[in-house]
C-alpha cells in the first residue's frame, strides 16, 4: 500500500490520473472502517486532508459551492439557511466525532444507498463538480448514482465540490434508524419545496439499490398544488392529496430485507416520512407566505 499526500488540488488530480485505482481518503469514516476490518487493501490511498480548498464553501449565483470535505458539523452549523435539507441531514450523520470528519464528498464517493446526504441533495437539486486533469464537469445529482455503491465518476476524477441551489422554500429531512443516535439509515426521506419554480423534489435513501427520487409523487403533488391554487392561496393541503403523495413516495421504493429492516417496513416508513415532511414544509411555507403577505 502506498500513501499519497498531495499538497494541492492540482497534485491530487495528477496523482489520481497517474493512479486511477487510488482510493481517495478525506474524513476516513468509510475507508478506514474497510481497512480496519480487512475488507479492503487498496494499492494507493490518496489523502485529501491537506487540500484546504475542499474544506471551504462559497456562494455562486444562487447556489452554494460546497467543498467536498466540508465536515457535516460545519454544514449543520453554518448552512442552515442556504441548505436547510442538507443541514438537517448532516445532523443525523452518525456521531459528533464522525460529523467533525466526514463530508459530502465521502457520501458521494462511496455512493452507498444509506448515505445520509443523498436524499437532501436529490431534493435540493444538486450538481456534483467532478474534476480530473482532463477538466471539470458538472454531473446532475439525478445522473450521479449508477448502481449499488457505484457512481458516475471516471476513474481519474475526484469530487471537488457539490453545487446546491440555495433554498427558495422550506426543506425537510427525516431518517429512520433503530436507535436514537448514531445509526445507519433504515430509510430516509428528503423533501424540498421550490416555490420559485412551483415544483417539489424528493429524495429517498436506503430504500432502493441507489438513492432515488419519487418522481411520480413529485409530479402528482406539483400538479395538485397548481390545480388547487395552493401556492397562492396557502391553504392546508387536503388529506387525500397528502395521502396520495405519501403512497406514491412509498411506491417509488424498491427496498430489500436486510438486518436493518424489512422491505415492507421501509416502504411503509417512507410513506409516513413523506406525509410528515410534507406537512412540516407546507406549514412552514404557509407561515412564511402569510408573513410576507403573499397569501390572500
Amino acid at each position: 500500500m502506498d500513501f499519497l499526500r498531495p499538497a494541492s488540488w492540482e497534485e491530487a488530480l495528477a496523482a489520481k490520473a497517474e493512479h486511477p485505482t487510488a482510493v481517495p481518503i478525506a474524513g476516513g469514516t468509510d475507508v478506514m472502517v474497510e481497512i480496519n476490518f480487512d475488507h479492503r487493501r487498496p494499492e494507493y490511498l490518496l489523502d485529501l486532508n491537506r487540500i484546504g480548498d475542499l474544506y471551504e464553501w462559497e456562494a455562486v449565483e444562487g447556489s452554494v459551492r460546497l467543498g467536498a470535505s466540508v465536515p457535516y458539523a460545519r454544514i449543520m452549523e453554518h448552512l442552515r439557511t442556504e441548505l436547510p435539507g442538507l443541514a438537517l441531514a448532516s445532523h443525523t450523520v452518525a456521531s459528533p466525532q464522525i460529523r467533525n470528519r466526514g463530508g459530502v464528498g465521502g457520501n458521494l464517493g462511496t455512493a452507498s444507498p444509506a448515505g445520509d446526504a443523498h436524499p437532501a441533495l436529490l431534493a435540493a437539486g444538486a450538481e456534483v463538480e467532478a474534476e480530473s486533469v482532463r477538466g471539470t464537469r458538472l454531473i446532475p445529482i439525478d445522473d450521479f448514482y449508477t448502481g449499488v455503491k457505484r457512481n458516475a465518476l471516471a476513474p481519474d476524477e475526484l469530487i471537488r465540490a457539490v453545487r446546491v441551489h440555495k433554498a427558495d422554500g422550506p426543506q425537510q429531512y427525516s431518517k429512520v434508524g433503530t436507535r436514537n443516535a448514531m445509526v445507519i439509515a433504515v430509510c430516509a426521506f428528503g423533501l424540498a419545496l421550490h416555490p420559485e419554480t412551483r415544483t417539489v423534489r424528493t429524495g429517498i435513501g436506503s430504500a432502493a439499490p441507489t438513492p432515488v427520487r419519487a418522481r411520480t409523487a413529485e409530479d402528482f403533488l406539483s400538479a395538485a398544488l397548481d390545480e388547487g391554487g395552493w401556492w397562492d392561496n396557502g391553504k392546508v393541503i387536503t388529506p387525500s392529496v397528502v395521502k396520495q403523495f405519501a403512497d406514491l413516495c412509498a411506491a417509488a421504493c424498491n427496498p430489500i430485507d436486510d438486518v436493518r429492516g424489512t422491505a415492507g417496513y421501509r416502504r411503509h416508513a417512507v410513506g409516513v416520512l413523506a406525509r410528515r415532511t410534507l406537512t412540516w414544509t407546507w406549514d412552514s411555507y404557509r407561515g412564511t407566505a402569510q408573513q410576507k403577505g403573499m397569501v390572500a
Binding site: G27, T29, M32, V33, N36, L45, S95, P96, Q97, R101
Partner: peptide, 23 residues
C-alpha cells in the same frame, strides 16, 4: 475500530475525532 463507540476519541487540531478512522 469503526467509529461507532468513541472510545478512541482524541482531538485533532482541537476537534474531537475517532482516531481509529484517521489514517
Amino acid at each position: 475500530e469503526q467509529g461507532e463507540c468513541g472510545s478512541c476519541t482524541v482531538r485533532l487540531d482541537g476537534v474531537p475525532v475517532c482516531s481509529c478512522l484517521v489514517a
